[in-house]
Structures are given as structure tokens and as C-alpha cells.
Nucleic acid binder design. Structure first.
Lengths: 258, 258
DNA sequence: CGTGATTTTGACGACACTCAAATAAAGTGG
DNA sequence: CCACTTTATTTGAGTGTCGTCAAAATCACG
């Protein structure tokens, strides 16, 4: 439970009052910070600022130079690219423990990022982060592994976009988000979907109407139920897994947004 | 020119007689090896074996444990995943200087890889490679940057798969491959496509028939010409760029396959 | 030159998109 | 707290792009 938050926002996964002391921050156990040793963490702490960002706020815009690296503590961020005519592709969702920002040749944001919920995040200057990785090669290596895992996740996204139909896409997404964000919660078959249908659509390469229709189709087949439109319960996980074409769910990793 | 090779295989981009001496290997200038310092390279050389692989040979299969890391010197490799019912998604093509293999949590191949042409590659044991990165933090950092660039490339692939139509997809692919493999060749508007139409289709999330139809459509619009079915010349680059929805081509980077 | 593989072209159908309206949910001010 | 407005989601009807199936044409290779 999360006693500090008001209502049933189960997508706020982290513990009480994080931000001041890493030892009580739940991202210490799971996310990026769990990859770090005590000395590395101590170094970072001195350079980090904790930011509270309300929902639907733009964190960064594609093609602008990047100044900061964020580590999400609480809440959900969506990453997206837009084509000149307005078509959008959501390239990922970030949750607690995930990283926004990194080291690319271009040193510019490649995606835009917008908070889906209220977000609590640690921020560090890009140059400081770069220096930090130089000073702690083990951390750099851990980050390289995370980046490699992110590449695998993006491969999975590619086969989803290129070779799955609407039902398979939605089934896969629900299983994936459940796996990332609710696997060890008190209601393991629940998924909170704080984002809008159009965000899901843009992640899945569908129109928002098709997403909506697909939700009702899955409900009719009794594979899921939606007590509220942003809360889904997986009623028949084996069938969903079969529909999604999964043989095993991917290893959990620290997601990276750029 | 490449006097050592027999015919007009312009997709063999590297120089003469690579493999024995890194100083005369053209991948020294462009690809993964260009990221390394002299001492790092010297360390690697002792552990590398040079492998010649004929075309259409499987290099690795998804879900098998990975034993080696390859650096492609010459030729083209395709990376793909298959769904249980046979649907395929090609997740990328590797050319000279690109890497196959890396450090993921799972330590298993995430894709299968097959040579499209005859391939010359340097191979190093996974454990040796891991040790190498630990011994040369600068190399690890360079690889992290490459991995980050690969993540950006995969984001671009996602928007291609999710939000572009057939013509836009093909235009984008032709520009991208031209940019990666022919930008500084003697015929800058040529693209060699050694892979089959079905491979292009599986990369673009289309059927091979649609790819073929789209080729003829682009030819009718005089945007391209195909003197041979595996050689394309870009006749109207601005129009192709506009069709693909590019404002700028991505930075060239060392591609990474897993 | 002949055989098999690959690519192209054609006809038809289906899945997902577009446009449009109705319903539901969330936010706002009295 | 409720009425009202705004935003988001669902549902419906019709269309179009791309997929499937099938056959012809072209290419590669022995």
C-alpha cells in the first residue's frame, strides 16, 4: 500500500516519502539505482535534484539538446515521436526505476517525453552523469547491460508493430505492463493504465477506435475485465499469453528513454 | 575499389585483404574497431579469430545461449525473430563494422541471424569480450554510446512500422541503407540490396507482394530505378526524403545485433 | 539451355482506418 | 455537492490499403 497518496492510484508503485534518503526509496531495490554500489550512489546523491512534475507536462522535446538525465521514482512517463503531419508513435512508457536520458552521439533528445501521471523523478545534469560513468566503470557496464536489454525490448516492440494483429497487440501490451508494474503487487492480475486510449493506440500502431473495439472484443471473450476504463484485470492469463504469442515474458530490466 | 573480390559485389565495402592486420582493415576506420584505442585493439587481436561464412548460413538462433561476439568486416547479415506460427520480423541488417552479440541479462540470443551474402567477421568469445570491456572502460563507454544510438535507430524503426504506409516505408529504407552503405562510395545514389524481397518485407512489416508492388510504384513515379532487381538507384532524392518524412538522416553509428 | 527459386502482376477479400454520433467520465464553477 | 462544460471513450457505418491466393514472368545456377 502507499499510504501517502490519496486514492487508488496503484500505478504509483514506490514506497512512502522517497526523494530525500536513497535508503528508503523503493527504486533503490528495483530500478537504475539498484545497479549501483554504495559509493557510486553516494557520489550521485550530491548532484541529484528531486523534481515533482504534474501530469501532462512535457519533460523534453525531440531534437532539443539534452541537459539532464532523469530517474523516475514514481508515476508514468510516455515517450513519443511525431511525424511532420502529426502522426505519432509512442516508443515506450517509463515507470519507477526507469531512466530518461543517456549518452548518444547527437546529444539531443530523440523522443519527446510527457508525464502521464504526476511524476517524482531524480534529475542530474548530463555532464555530471557522463563524468559519473567515467568515474564508476561498473556503473557504466551496468548501464550498458540495461541498454542491451532495452534493445531487446525494442526488438519485441518491432515484431509487435510489424507482425501482430490488433488483438495480439493489445494482449501483449497488457501482459507486458502487468509484468513490469504489477507483478509483485497485492493484486497480481490487475493492470493500471493511466495513459489514454490514444496513447495505447500510438504505442501499438493502431487507431484509438480500434483499440477501444479491441478492448470490448477481449472483454466479450472474457479474457479481461475493465472495472474502470483505466484499470484492467487479466481474467484468463494463459489465453492472453497464447494470443500474444509469448512463450516466456521478457526479463525485467531498467527501461531507457532517449 | 575492391580488387580481391570477383564481380560487382558493391555491398562488400571494406578494403583489400582484411583480417590479418587491423591497420589495413577498413573497419578500423568506420565500425566498432574505430571506437577503440591502439592498446585496446592490441588486446582484442590476440583473442579474435577471423571467420569466413558463406551466404545463407545461420550465425545464431534465438534463445540459444550466446558464446561469441562478432564484428562484421564484410558482407551483410540479417537479424530476425519468428513467431510460433512462422510470421517473421526482420529487426535489422548488419554490415561492415557492425556488432553481433553483446551483454544482455539473459545471455541468450534474442534474434536469429543469417548471412545474406558471404561474410567475413572477427569473432571473440563472450567471456573474453566481457573481460575486455572490464579492462578497458573507455571501450565500454564507447559501446554504451553505440548501444544508445542503436536504441534511437530502433525508435525510428518503430515509427516506420507503426505509422508509415508502404511507400513511405520503402522510401525510408532505401534512403537509410544508402546512407549506411553507399554514402561515401563512388556511386552515391546507388543502393545494393543483396537481401530478398521477403527480407525487406519482413523488415518493413509488409507482405513481399506489397514490397514488389511498391517498387514498381516508386519506379513509375521516377523516384528510383532498378537496373537489376538487387540494385537500386535513387533518381530523386529530395522527393524520396519528403516521402519518407525525414527532416534529417540519422547519425551513422555502429549497429548492434543481439 | 533447362530447372528451380525469386520476383512481378492480377483478382479478390479482410482487417483496420476514417468520419460521425452517442455515451461516459473528468473537470469546473456556482 | 450538483449542474454544466469539456474531454475521453465507445459504438456504428462505410471505405481503403494492404494481405492472401494464384499465375505469369524473370532471374540464378548447374
Amino acid at each position: 500500500m502507499t499510504p501517502t497518496t490519496t486514492s487508488g492510484d496503484a500505478y504509483c508503485l514506490t514506497g512512502p516519502h522517497p526523494g530525500q534518503d536513497c535508503r528508503v526509496c523503493s527504486s533503490r531495490q528495483n530500478g537504475f539505482c539498484s545497479l549501483l554500489g554504495g559509493d557510486a550512489l553516494a557520489r550521485l546523491r550530491g548532484q541529484v535534484t528531486v523534481e515533482t512534475v504534474p501530469r501532462r507536462r512535457i519533460l523534453c522535446r525531440q531534437d532539443e539538446p539534452f541537459d539532464k538525465v532523469y530517474v523516475v521514482q514514481r508515476g508514468v512517463v510516455k515517450l513519443y515521436q511525431v511525424l511532420s503531419d502529426g502522426r505519432r508513435q509512442v516508443t515506450g512508457f517509463l515507470g519507477p526505476g526507469d531512466i530518461l536520458g543517456g549518452l548518444s552521439q547527437r546529444r539531443h533528445w530523440h523522443c519527446s517525453a510527457e508525464t502521464v501521471t504526476d511524476v517524482l523523478a531524480c534529475a542530474i545534469g548530463r555532464a555530471d552523469f557522463s563524468d559519473f560513468l567515467r568515474a564508476f566503470p561498473d556503473a557504466a557496464l551496468s548501464l550498458l547491460i540495461a541498454a542491451t536489454d532495452e534493445i531487446e525490448a525494442l526488438h519485441d516492440h518491432a515484431i509487435l508493430l510489424g507482425r501482430r494483429n490488433a488483438q495480439e497487440k493489445l494482449a501483449a501490451l497488457l501482459l507486458l505492463l502487468n509484468h513490469r508494474w504489477s507483478a509483485d503487487s497485492d493484486s497480481p492480475d490487475q493492470v493500471q493504465l493511466p495513459m489514454r486510449r490514444s496513447d495505447l493506440a500510438d504505442y501499438l500502431g493502431l487507431s484509438l477506435e480500434t483499440v477501444s473495439r479491441t478492448f470490448t472484443a477481449l472483454k466479450r471473450q472474457r479474457l479481461i475485465a475493465t472495472p474502470r476504463s483505466h484499470a484492467v484485470s487479466l481474467r484468463n492469463r494463459p489465453a492472453l499469453i497464447h494470443m500474444a504469442g509469448f512463450d516466456e515474458l521478457p526479463v525485467r530490466h531498467v527501461a531507457i528513454g532517449l
